[in-house]
C-alpha cells in the first residue's frame, strides 16, 4: 500500500524543499490563508449584521462593526455561556486528574512485569481504542441507569475517563519501558513501596507522556458533544460548551447574528490558551509521541 503511494509524495513534496525555498514558503502561505479564512470569517462576522455578513463577508470597515450581537449571545437565556465554561472546565480537570491517577499505576505494572497476563491486560486495554465512543454511549446509558449515575456529573466523568484509558495506558506503558528499571530497584532497596516508587521516582520522569495525554484529553473532553448530550441530557440542566452551542444554534442556523457570536464565544477560551501555549502544545504532543 505504502509502496505505491509514498514515493509519489516524495516527488511532489520533497523536491521543492531542496530546489526552491521560495516556492515552499509561497505554497505554505497560500495553504495558511486557506486554513485561516474560516476563522477570519468567524471573528469578523461575530461583529456584523446579517445583511453585511452576506453582502460583504470579508470586509472589515469600522462603521459596520458592532458588539451588540456578541453581547446578546453572552446573555442568551437558552445558554449561559459563563456557566458552560465553568462546567466544561470542571469536567476537563476531573477527567485529567482521574485519568492519570488510574492509568499511571496500571501502566507501571504492565511495563515492569513480563508475565503473559500483563501483556494480555495491555491488549485488553488497547482493544478499547477500536470501540467507537459514539456507539458505546448507547449501552452505557443503561449501565449508568443501573448504577444510578445516569444524568449525573460522576457518571459522565467516569465514562469520559474510561474513554481516555486505552490510549493513555498504551502511551504510558511504552514510555515507562524506556525508563531504566534500575532506578526503581534502587528505590526498593531504600525501602520505598511500589506506590511510592511509582509516584515519586517514575512519574516525574514520564512527564512528557503525561503532558501529551493531558493536552489530548483536554481537547477531547472540552470538544466532546455526543457524550454530554446523551449522558447529561437537556433534563439535567447541565450544559457543556458544545451542548450549549447546539441548544443555542441549531434552531437558528441561518440567523448568522446568533450563529457566529455564539461560536466565537464557544471556541475563544481554548483557542486563546492554545495560541498562548502553542509551542508547548505542539512540542508536548511530539515529545510524548516520539518515545511512546
Amino acid at each position: 500500500m505504502s509502496a505505491i503511494r509514498m514515493p509519489r509524495v516524495a516527488t511532489v513534496q520533497f523536491k521543492p524543499l531542496r530546489t526552491k525555498g521560495a516556492g515552499r514558503i509561497a505554497f505554505l502561505i497560500v495553504t495558511s490563508v486557506l486554513m485561516l479564512v474560516p476563522m477570519y470569517l468567524l471573528v469578523v462576522s461575530a461583529f456584523k449584521s446579517q445583511q453585511d455578513i452576506l453582502a460583504h463577508p470579508f470586509s472589515l470597515s469600522p462603521d459596520q462593526l458592532t458588539t451588540q450581537y456578541l453581547e446578546k449571545a453572552w446573555t442568551n437565556p437558552d445558554f449561559n455561556i459563563l456557566k458552560g465554561y465553568a462546567v466544561t472546565a470542571l469536567f476537563v480537570v476531573s477527567v485529567n486528574v482521574l485519568s492519570v491517577a488510574l492509568a499511571g499505576p496500571v501502566s507501571y505494572v504492565i511495563a515492569r512485569r513480563s508475565e503473559r497476563r500483563y501483556r494480555m491486560l495491555l491488549l485488553l486495554f488497547v482493544a478499547g481504542t477500536f470501540i467507537p465512543s459514539q456507539v458505546l454511549v448507547i449501552p452505557v446509558v443503561y449501565t449508568l441507569k443501573f448504577l444510578g449515575l445516569m444524568g449525573t456529573i460522576p457518571g459522565f466523568v467516569l465514562f469520559e475517563t474510561t474513554l481516555t484509558l486505552p490510549f493513555s495506558i498504551f502511551l504510558y506503558a511504552g514510555y515507562i519501558m524506556t525508563i531504566p528499571a534500575s532506578l526503581d530497584e534502587a528505590a526498593a532497596v531504600d525501602g520505598a513501596g511500589k506506590h511510592r516508587t511509582f509516584w515519586s521516582i517514575v512519574f516525574p520522569l514520564m512527564k512528557p507522556a503525561v503532558v501529551t495525554m493531558v493536552i489530548l484529553n483536554t481537547f477531547s473532553v472540552w470538544n466532546d458533544f455526543v457524550n454530554p448530550q446523551i449522558i447529561l441530557g437537556p433534563g439535567s440542566g447541565l450544559y457543556t460548551v458544545t451542548t450549549g452551542v447546539y441548544a443555542a444554534v441549531s434552531q437558528y442556523s441561518t440567523d448568522y447574528t446568533v450563529v457566529f457570536p455564539t461560536l466565537l464565544l464557544a471556541v475563544a477560551p481554548l483557542l486563546v490558551v492554545f495560541v498562548l501555549l502553542q509551542r508547548h502544545v505542539i512540542s508536548g504532543l511530539t515529545a510524548g509521541a516520539t518515545k511512546g
Binding site: 486554513m35 476563522m39 470538544n223 458533544f225
Partner: peptide, 12 residues
Amino acid sequence: ILFYPHVLSALV
C-alpha cells in the same frame, strides 16, 4: 496554523 482547527470542536 495547520494544527489549530483541531482545537475547535467538530460540532463548532
